[in-house]
Design a protein around this nucleic acid. Structure first.
Lengths: 218, 218
DNA sequence: GTCTATACACCGATAGAC
DNA sequence: GTCTATCGGTGTATAGAC
């Protein structure tokens, strides 16, 4: 039997986490306080401390619940990517949806707020790693046998993509009209198509030796 | 005759700006308050409001003074770049120094604090544009005649590099041990060397038509 | 131009009634 | 588990002495 729900609907803990994310998205980290969160979620301010101990911890948990969802979403979508061009196209679509939902903006705000607080920083970074791990796998699968993969590690590249997305979202929030995020990503898509052909060309062989076939020992 | 200096040394306005930057760097935007700034610079809290009207305005002006210095520094350094490989090498050096000084971290913090405040955001973005304008020129000069330039606009690419740097600095602050910023940039350097050869290859001609020679009309 | 003193709003966090 | 009430602290900003 499904658990009987209160009239308020969802579980309080979840309501707090959702309100915390919404607050982070609309008010930014400087405007995120226990009172502001409580006002958004229409519950009592003291509940945050009862359930999470502090505002900071509520923020960390809220971001954690968000990155979990994103990790799963990225995993299913990236499973469709077979080569570089597809990978870039999917990445562009995912980012577009993230921009609408504000997921990456929330992340950026939480990061900014954790500056100078090593413990909080490490927790947030660990949550990001789960997410980027999926990206890294996607890169590995669609680029693993390309000669470019022998130069750039997929983990490092996934980190770079995350950093790029976080930075672009932060900059776009400053001046949405002027920041050329979509244009840049479109151009990257075209560049990726070009690169894909180049990477397969015989010329590559002279620059990057093919993977040394691990000959069966002896 | 040079203006007589007070015993405190430098001009108060400048002292406030410096203390504001230092506060942004060490405390982050959430920890940046009039009292915190005044404590760092060892002056009275009320002076901030007398000279700048509000803490927010002091932050904007402080960041502005920083981006000006950075713009000049980038301009002189980037003047040495003649091709893609050199450009990437110089970019890596500049970023390394920025990381030491914390310039980009301050920028990221100021950006994060301006979220949800369009006026402040626009002002900060305009300051960043001065900086990226120099980067864009550097790209143009060292890549202008390459076929890649016909795909990616130098302004857009400069924006992307800024976003990448801001994002990397924000992520590195979370967990300096784990974030592979230097590794990634080293790999990008190698990739750039490879690309430089590829872009010059005859194969490019089949993918990207050479610039249509603007034939003199009639 | 710089200081002290202060007004007033909001912050995180807790105690205790329900 | 949720509420009200409240503590001490800190925030921005200003008035007024010097």
């Amino acid at each position: 039997m499904a658990p009987k729900k209160k009239s308020t609907g969802t579980d309080t803990k979840k309501r707090i986490l959702d309100a915390t994310l919404e607050c982070l998205r609309t008010n930014g980290i400087v405007g995120t306080s226990a009172r502001a969160i409580a006002a958004i979620g229409d519950f009592n301010q003291a509940l945050i401390f009862y359930h999470f101990g502090s505002v900071n911890d509520a923020v960390i948990q809220a971001v954690g619940s968000m990155t979990e969802r994103q990790r799963d979403r990225y995993r299913t979508r990236l499973a469709e990517a077979d080569d570089l061009a597809e990978l870039v196209t999917i990445a562009r679509d995912l980012r577009e949806e993230d921009a609408r939902l504000g997921s990456i903006s929330m992340l950026a705000q939480a990061f900014a707020g954790a500056a100078g607080n090593p413990e909080q920083g490490k927790q947030l970074y660990a949550q990001l790693e789960e997410w980027t791990g999926v990206v890294s796998e996607g890169i590995e699968r669609s680029l693993g046998d390309s000669p470019a993969a022998s130069i750039v590690s997929s983990e490092h590249l996934a980190f770079g993509i995350s950093a790029l997305f976080v930075g672009m979202e932060l900059l776009s929030a400053m001046d949405p009209e002027k920041a050329p995020t979509d244009e840049l990503l479109d151009e990257f898509g075209q560049l990726a198509q070009m690169l894909q052909v180049l990477l397969a060309s015989p010329l590559m062989q002279s620059l990057v030796p093919p993977k040394t076939n691990p000959a069966p020992s002896s």
